[in-house]
Design a protein around this nucleic acid. Sequence first.
DNA 1: CAGTAAACTTACTCTTGAGTAAGAACGTAC
DNA 2: GTACGTTCTTACTCAAGAGTAAGTTTACTG
Lengths: 233, 233
Amino acid sequence: MDPQPGRKRLPRKVREQQMLDAAVQVFSRHGFHAASMDEVAERAQVSKPLLYLYLGSKEEIFSACIAREADRLVNAIGSAALNRDDDPADRLWHGLTAFFSYVAEHRASWVVLYQQARSQSDSLAAQVARSRSEIIDTVTELVRQSMESPARGGDGSNYAALRRESAAVAHALVGAADALAEWALAVPGEQPEATARRLMNMMWIGLERRAKGEGYHAPDGPAGTDGPAAPRP
Amino acid sequence: MDPQPGRKRLPRKVREQQMLDAAVQVFSRHGFHAASMDEVAERAQVSKPLLYLYLGSKEEIFSACIAREADRLVNAIGSAALNRDDDPADRLWHGLTAFFSYVAEHRASWVVLYQQARSQSDSLAAQVARSRSEIIDTVTELVRQSMESPARGGDGSNYAALRRESAAVAHALVGAADALAEWALAVPGEQPEATARRLMNMMWIGLERRAKGEGYHAPDGPAGTDGPAAPRP
DNA sequence: CAGTAAACTTACTCTTGAGTAAGAACGTAC
DNA sequence: GTACGTTCTTACTCAAGAGTAAGTTTACTG
């Protein structure tokens, strides 16, 4: 007789994953410092000493969460964006769709990765910064390829500027995606594809025209370092 | 004889502001839960009981920080964006420039407002949500005015869609601005105006063309709810 | 120079939560 | 069944930090 089947004596690897699942949930709700390891243990249906025996310390548990979730997210985006056709726009589109789907489905994962992670100041910052830049780098590369493809002759002189601009775009894109993902969760019936399309519409066209040399011309602002200011249409 | 002038017996209002200054710094570095009130007291050059006597509890102190900083930020943006010419693009431009200047100069303030604030789950969430939506609403209104101005006949049928789209744009804009602000701090010589111009170039052109009915058309993705898919140029 | 109200401090209490010591239950090999 | 290694728990220790009791100093007023 076994009243609760599957609820006892699991192999270590399985338990560890359960613990990490619980930890991600708790960290995402409360943040690193406010998260209670008692709560993690309770959620994982396990006692606290086992948690510590398997995973070390609170920091190590957080670290393991970050590593696992970053890996999952990068894989999700990468497999959607990289193994596709060569058109940068479509790759970006698929990547964004994958991202919004991922966030919608694994919200806690994203919260831990992007939001909770930013604020920590300890040694966690390094770990977190690495994971974040892994994501940003993927996007930066995507954007960079997009920006050099149309109407960019062998212009190698402003390569540094191109790199800087693509980094800026990538950061903005990820930030916008984050904010949009949170917004989308509060809007009933907003599908991940729809959110991705919104973001593409906002930014991609800007990129295309930017590549052709067009752009917004600032009026005479407080600091006029704009060079020759042309009138807007 | 007064060896350290200005270091003793200050009136309550002044001390309170010093305490809030210190609190903003500490909260921005460590987040709400990890922030130590001892550290706040030390930074404010004051003992802990005085801190509690004047400002109440840790939560109330955090609350007061949020309220004060949100007010400052909204004022900074509002006075730059609203008291200008009527062109929505220029207003947005001035607002963004003011924003990036503010973040560059009062980094801790923004961190507390936008980053730390998102994670809390307690009653703080309400306070924080109100302040954040105050900012978002300002931007949403700016964006909405921009979107209806060009080539939008008296089309009142998709008013709800317009509202939703402008909300999405506003969220994306603020998220992108946040990410860009952080990025800009790590790039030497990046001026607030330059960052604002980048963001305008990314998004404003997208908005303009979007208003004319143009947009990115997704390829045959996993979910093809795109309506009639026209080929991209 | 009292007297008094505000500004301010030292030195505590008490809760919460990270981390652990010591050992109990379970499964498996012989 | 009995030896042995793995899984797992009850019941603690200990430090950090929120919040406070009671008292001390300064400045101003009559």
